[in-house]
């Protein structure tokens, strides 16, 4: 029996979101979400960000619009989402059915000394996403709910926003390739085929 008050563990959440990942495409926000996605298994269909804070959700939108038959999953942190907060409004207007945004919310800036983010003071990202117009917007506190979000992400029947309340634990880093050209080229080759190398 899951204790609803216990905070989720970030790697358990990400491993479940990426269970039987099929051909889902993943954008990972900078910092710990990048390391979490990489710990679940480095993959050509991952685009893990090492910078460009605030980019993750909008990269997911551009990718989802370009690849309407594929499912796109953005996994990022609360600080990164807050920096790109306007993108929730832009995404709500565009409503791509194949885009899920999962925010790992430890209420901290993890890479810089665990300082509190706005969510520690009650700013409700799931409420903001809902108010922007993303109708499927949930706060997730149990692994059963994580599984529901995982299934929604793979179904692609509407834009989904999920705020995962996670433990502010510091874990061993698992690093993907750092070079942007390698990450870009292998992703495009995987999604578009060898033709991507020539265009």
């Amino acid at each position: 029996m899951t204790n609803p008050n216990a905070l989720l563990h970030r790697r358990d959440v990400v491993n479940e979101l990426l269970r039987d990942r099929g051909d889902i495409l993943v954008i990972a926000g900078l910092g710990a979400p990048n390391w979490d996605v990489s710990a679940a298994g480095d993959h050509a269909n991952n685009f893990p960000l090492w910078g460009a804070m605030g980019a993750a959700a909008m990269m997911g939108l551009g990718l989802a619009l370009a690849q309407p038959k594929r499912k796109v999953l953005v996994i990022t942190g609360d600080g990164e989402m807050l920096m790109g907060i306007g993108s929730l409004a832009t995404i709500a207007v565009e409503k791509p059915p194949n885009l899920t945004i999962a925010v790992l919310d430890n209420e901290r800036f993890g890479e810089t000394g665990m300082q509190k983010t706005h969510t520690a003071s009650g700013v409700d990202l799931a409420g903001m996403a809902l108010a922007a117009g993303i109708r499927t917007s949930q706060t997730v506190r149990t692994m059963e709910q994580v599984t529901e979000i995982r299934d929604l992400a793979h179904q692609g029947k509407g834009t989904v926003f999920a705020l995962m309340k996670i433990n502010p634990e510091a874990l061993v880093f698992t690093l993907p390739p750092a070079d942007g050209v390698i990450l870009t080229t292998r992703f495009r080759q995987s999604v578009l085929g060898d033709e991507a190398l020539y265009n």
Binding site: M59, R188, L192
Partner: peptide, 16 residues
């Protein structure tokens, strides 16, 4: 405007 820089990076990853 920076949303657009990120969006078009995602578009490029998807071949557009």
């Amino acid at each position: 405007e920076e949303e657009g820089v990120a969006m078009l990076a995602g578009a490029w990853l998807g071949g557009q």
